[in-house]
Nucleic acid binder design. Structure first.
Lengths: 341, 341
DNA sequence: TTGTAGGCGTTATCAC
DNA sequence: GTGATAACGCCTACAA
């Protein structure tokens, strides 16, 4: 580690390096940037001078010329939440590997705050913007901006925008296919708030597959809340009304946890008597469940990476349009399995 | 909303505004920055020109002069984790209100990646750095850097650095005081990995308070893992060995959830027979528990805000030193209450 | 009250 | 191979 004396001194500039190496600014620049038009020995001298001064080039100054800041803005609406974080990780992943950095803002679901942050980011001359929603329903477009925008998780209402979302319908299908493969035929669905498009999509995917197999959802899907409490309550309703239920599809892992609790207390064995599935693959819930929870992973990190990739394409001048859908995957665990004969 | 035509055109510059307003660069600058040396009417003209062009000043260019980038770097080691997010929110909160933005990097617990990110951030001329750890144990210092650094959640091993951490000892005390106030005297402790300093600190705080009241911890604290599974197992041990236990202090909310499950299945009523406390106040776990979980909130957002405040102080030339401790607070819920007579 | 000119740190384009 | 020099977009003395 270099012995940088003091905290306050301004960082060394290219001029300092050049002076120390006894060359001109131009030569110093070329040396450091690997240009070929400089003698090896000279380059050595510059490099060691830079090393000695602990020089790191001022990226901001570089931006003035290039017109690119090497920075993207990430506006999230759900920083404390479950869904934005993996998306954000994926985006940071895709961005960070190169030499673009991520400016993070939390708009907390407030359109005004969003507007404010977007303006601030534009002032910082970000090369592009990713907007991560809090829930998967379509949201208003930011409109025409001087830089490309990708909407992640929550798509833009404007089909001309770029959006990346999870495939909730397919997620629902995966669950149903899995349960059918397990030999289940008395299937109930317990899911969350009917105000969420995702709730319906997941139900639609599942019911479609079940219907093809001639299986009807017992009593129809039960909508409620995204809580364990509702899972417990709803599972009670199901068990009372359909004693021979052999599978319960839950709209989220939280709901599934509640379902599992009620089943255990009702003396139903999982998965022997009743198979249970969750959704989201929230490991803190899924892995700690008894038994561990079969769930749908929405591949949110992949979604984030994809969003970043689309954004970079657009920045490079190759914009896509419309909504891209990231498939989910089933993560089978102990809460499902073949139905005993 | 301005009708910005096209996606690709370069943003307008101050020169464009000046030209449109028919004034010089300097006058345009003064007008936009509220300098007094310009006629009201002229200012109007400039402002409306700026409006018309949808001009937003290039903050990066401004940095070249001021030497400040209006940006801080946030290096986290636990982006997917429970603890860094609220800290990050607090920091973003404190920063975002002003006009400094946050550059986010996830180092994922890897020192090399951390080093890399720090260099990248320094290249971007951040005004300061906040490093958020993944676990509360002391970590190696980054050493002398050209900008101030604050270590959040995980303190630096070097006392000359600035650190902000949670008060785990005090958290432990709060729990013990609460349980004593509830009239409990047969108290067990179930906590996580003994490799975590936080586990010991919380235990120490609790046992100290209990000892003062003449209460010993039944069988001594049980160390294990930060999982529900261990909570279930350990609670089983406790109940078998100490039938008259009337309180179980859990080292985390996850553990507490496991404890609650075992107690319910053992036929113990909570809180009547046994009071249970958690730690972390992870709402997804605490609020969904039966009954809802009394827990310790570490005030992580406050921690983040404080870290940012310390950083800003240091940036302004008023650096603090040493480790600042943020007190926790008890959040009482249904899992604790007075012991019935 | 307004305009001119220099400089912030870097890179690219030329001459040398 | 190397070195002046002109940008980039903005701000701030200073001059007019």
């Amino acid at each position: 580690m270099q012995t940088t004396t003091g905290n306050t001194r301004k960082p060394p500039t290219l001029a300092d390096v050049a002076k120390l190496a006894g060359v001109s600014l131009a030569t110093a620049s070329k040396s450091l940037n690997g240009r070929q038009q400089v003698k090896a020995e000279t380059r050595e001298r510059v490099l060691s001078a830079a090393e000695q001064l602990n020089f790191s080039p001022n990226v901001l100054a570089r931006h003035l010329l290039s017109g690119r800041s090497g920075t993207i803005g990430l506006v999230t609406h759900d920083l404390e939440g479950r869904f934005s974080i993996p998306t954000l990780m994926g985006a940071e992943d895709a961005a960070g590997t190169g030499k673009t950095s991520v400016l993070l803002c939390d708009a907390r679901g407030d359109a005004l705050r969003e507007q404010y942050h977007v303006q601030a980011l534009l002032g910082r001359r970000v090369d592009g913007l990713i907007v991560v929603g809090a829930r998967p329903d379509p949201r208003p477009s930011l409109g025409q901006l001087p830089v490309p925008v990708v909407y992640a998780y929550a798509p833009s209402q404007d089909p001309a925008d770029m959006s990346v979302v999870t495939d909730n319908v397919q997620g629902g299908r995966l669950v149903a296919e899995h349960l059918l493969a397990c030999g289940r035929s008395r299937v109930a669905i317990v899911t969350g708030d009917a105000g969420y498009g995702a709730a319906h999509d997941r139900v639609d995917g599942a019911t479609a597959v079940l219907a093809e197999a001639g299986v009807e959802v017992l009593g129809g899907p039960l909508y409620g809340a995204w809580t364990e409490e509702w899972g417990r309550t709803a599972a009670g309703l199901v068990v009372n009304r359909f004693a021979d239920v052999d599978a319960i599809i839950s709209g989220s892992d939280q709901i599934a946890r509640g379902v599992l609790d009620t089943l255990r207390e009702a003396g139903r064995r999982v998965p022997e008597d009743v198979a249970v599935t969750g959704h989201d693959n929230w490991e803190i819930l899924a892995l700690n469940a008894r038994p561990q929870l079969t769930s749908i992973d929405m591949n949110l990190e992949e979604l984030g990476r994809r969003a970043a990739a689309l954004l970079f394409d657009a920045i490079e001048g190759d914009p896509h349009h419309g909504t891209e859908v990231i498939p989910s995957r089933l993560v089978p665990r102990g809460s499902t399995g073949p139905k005993p004969a």
